[in-house]
Amino acid sequence: MTIAAPRTGPARLHLSENAHGASPLALLAARKALDPAAVYPDPARSAPAKAVAARLGVGEQQVAVANGSDELVLLSALALGDRDRPGVTTAGTFPGYRVCLTAVGRRCEEIPLDDGRVDADAVAAAMERAGIVYLCHPHNPSGAVLDRGRMDLLVERAAVTGTPLVVDEAYLEFAPAGTPQLRDYLGSGAPLLSLRTFSKAYGLAALRLGYAVGSAELVARLHEVQGTMPFSANAVAQAAAVAALADRDHLDEVRRQNSLQRAWFRSELARRGRRSLPSATNFVAVAVSDSAVAERLLAQDHDILVRDAGRFGFAGHLRVSLGPAKDLVRLMDALDLIDPVR
Rank of each mutant, 00 (worst) to 15 (best):
A11L: 14
S16L: 13
H20Y: 15
G21F: 05
L27T: 15
L27H: 11
L28R: 14
A29K: 08
K32Q: 14
L34T: 13
P41I: 05
P41D: 04
P43K: 04
P43M: 04
E60V: 15
Q62N: 02
V65Y: 10
S69M: 13
D70W: 14
L72W: 02
L75E: 01
P86E: 10
G87I: 11
T89S: 12
G92T: 01
T93G: 09
V99N: 07
V104E: 02
E109G: 09
E109Q: 15
G116P: 09
R117N: 11
V118R: 00
M127T: 12
I132H: 11
Y134C: 03
G143Q: 08
D147Q: 00
G149L: 13
R150F: 06
P164T: 09
V167P: 06
F174M: 07
P176F: 11
T179I: 05
Y185P: 03
L186W: 06
L186C: 10
G187K: 11
A190R: 09
P191V: 06
P191W: 11
L193C: 06
L195T: 03
A205H: 14
A206S: 14
S215K: 03
L218C: 01
V219L: 11
Q226V: 04
P230D: 09
V236G: 09
A240S: 08
V242P: 05
A244C: 04
L245F: 07
E253S: 01
N258L: 00
R262W: 05
A263L: 00
F265I: 00
S267A: 15
A270P: 02
G273H: 03
R275D: 11
A280N: 05
T281S: 11
A285G: 12
S289R: 15
S289G: 15
L297H: 01
A299I: 00
H302Y: 13
D303E: 15
I304Y: 02
R311S: 14
H317N: 10
V320D: 01
S321T: 08
L322S: 04
G323V: 01
P324Q: 02
A325E: 13
L335K: 14
I338Q: 08
D339F: 08
V341W: 10
V341N: 08
R342L: 01
